[in-house]
Write a protein that binds this DNA or RNA. Sequence first.
DNA 1: ACGCTGTGTGCATACGTATGCAAAGATAGC
DNA 2: GCTATCTTTGCATACGTATGCACACAGCGT
Lengths: 354, 354
Amino acid sequence: MSGTRRGLSSNDIARLAGVSQATVSRVLSGSARISEATRAKVMRVVEDVGYTPNAIAQAMRTRQSRTVGVAVSRVTNPVVLEILEAFGARLSALGRRMVVWNTDSEGEAAVIEAIRQGTVDGVVFTAASHQRTAIDEARARRLPLTLFNRPLPEVDCDQIVSDNRNGARTLARYLLSGGRRRIAYLSGPLDRTTLLERDRGFSDALAEAEQPLWQHCGAERVFDQQRFRQLAILLMQQAERPDAIACGNDMIAFAVLNGLASLGVRVPEDVWVAGFDGVAMSGWDLFDLTTMQQPWDAMADAAVATLIDQIDGNDSRAGIAQSEATLVVRGSTDHWHPPAQRHDKQRSPNGRNQ
Amino acid sequence: MSGTRRGLSSNDIARLAGVSQATVSRVLSGSARISEATRAKVMRVVEDVGYTPNAIAQAMRTRQSRTVGVAVSRVTNPVVLEILEAFGARLSALGRRMVVWNTDSEGEAAVIEAIRQGTVDGVVFTAASHQRTAIDEARARRLPLTLFNRPLPEVDCDQIVSDNRNGARTLARYLLSGGRRRIAYLSGPLDRTTLLERDRGFSDALAEAEQPLWQHCGAERVFDQQRFRQLAILLMQQAERPDAIACGNDMIAFAVLNGLASLGVRVPEDVWVAGFDGVAMSGWDLFDLTTMQQPWDAMADAAVATLIDQIDGNDSRAGIAQSEATLVVRGSTDHWHPPAQRHDKQRSPNGRNQ
DNA sequence: ACGCTGTGTGCATACGTATGCAAAGATAGC
DNA sequence: GCTATCTTTGCATACGTATGCACACAGCGT
């Protein structure tokens, strides 16, 4: 019923233009020495019939799929959005396709399968839990590989990350300078190197100020919005409440803000809240979240550049490229203290919660 | 430097197992009649060397890429997340790959190119603006095609949509029954059939109640968060304020809530707010948004089923399948009125804003 | 006229798989 | 024991493209 869905091939074009298939191929790749006359003749036919080379056959012949895979964890984490949007735009501009693996729902199997099937020329692993078998598979096949926002020092490959430890140090110092003394730190499972580094940096700064961490809790199991919301509620129901809650990332901070809202706890009057990542939503009035802003665009640029370089065989390894996150102070913390750093893209005239 | 990244082929397996390449292929496809002895012999070698068939070559031979494309608009719209997550999981379970096109940043070109290049077996177009040339291209190539959440009656293809007109009618009746009389309706560009239908349904219900629409405004250009936030602020700065703001979708409603928060306007005491779509975030305490919940999972099931049927040549066309959205009442409207429908998955003990 | 260089084109092949067809072996019917 | 049927396997080929190699031909110097 569906008719023969067969497209035209370069052979058809060759016949129509009265040249050989090889000539058609050369005209379209634009590389070889072709006379202007035949080039025009071929292009004319190509335009007329609307021919486009079959990408599958090209991939077969060149052994390059012109596709890169990006493995992400929970797609519902807005930081993943920032990453995907940045990568998609850049790869598309370079004429590459992008496939996305949701390692949260599909596991590593899909990634490993794709690597072995040869459907991707390279892979990017973004913030996620271990995934070591998939990484090892890529290494074993010598497949270009970049870690993004997720250092793994023991793996020898390009890593585009931010200095999470130092960033967390900056954040902790800011909270201390704002007079916070009962600081709770809320984070996720520490098999995520990103969160682990942030924990360390945070502890560094507190130790350096000879200030104990008031409370440290984390959801050991999964990255679970409801769980963090509940933890925030428990924190505030104690006899002695914290005066600041620092979070391992913005998503956790959102959950905390939700929990506080359900209790009627005011931010920042009753407690300060701070996140880490700088996702777009953190600037919304309802969150107005102080956070460590990562330079997503610059990081994506670097990651795509180094990955494509590897794919194309230019041996310009990036190694471990560390960028710095910058503190963005918003209404979820009392922002009078460091006057130079006030950042209000969306001006909110009467501050938070009026 | 990078060594020869050549994997093993079915020829290698055949040689190692002492059979022909054809036999290896038949064993792995599992279909043909192969004796148990040779099957075991081949599988043994396959396991030992860790062989996986080259998907590119398979695609070349079978003329099936086992990949479907999904065109989405702004990736930052959370509804897109719901859709991508639902599609990804289902396609992965069926052993299909998924590529995502962000038509907002890449335009239609990438979609058309992929269709012509033969890298996808079928396409799904989700909520977005027109994209007619891409749709026409797919039709011309007889490529399986499904419209998702986005009716286009003049196009003859499967369409999985919800009854937006009726849903909006339900929402309007609810607001009226709650005593709202000065209702503003805030929507986006009406070249999106989804929003157009919702506008119509909303008008239907008001006309039927002989109640005029207080105010109707929309951003004509783009889908712009900042713009809707500003519109909400302007609405509330008028001499006579609306007592309810209904929004064309949840994303607009979030922008409105942000604008109201920046003014210190209370919800629902000063004004009710309602959305449409039922994205996961609408249940967060800070939004607590009354909305029309679309049955995303069921819709994704239907879309994937009909698309795969088309790809596999089973002529079970779904036609235009319309599902119903259900009203979910939350704290952004005064929820005492329709007692049966209170929906509180996340119990918020003291209600909104304490 | 001959050789030589350079330019433009065609011929042939390989990439890795799936599959139609034929053939070899096994089993059964007479 | 001979033919007929069934099962299992191999041979050969095609999918659409890119590219090494050879070849034709023009231009030019001798």
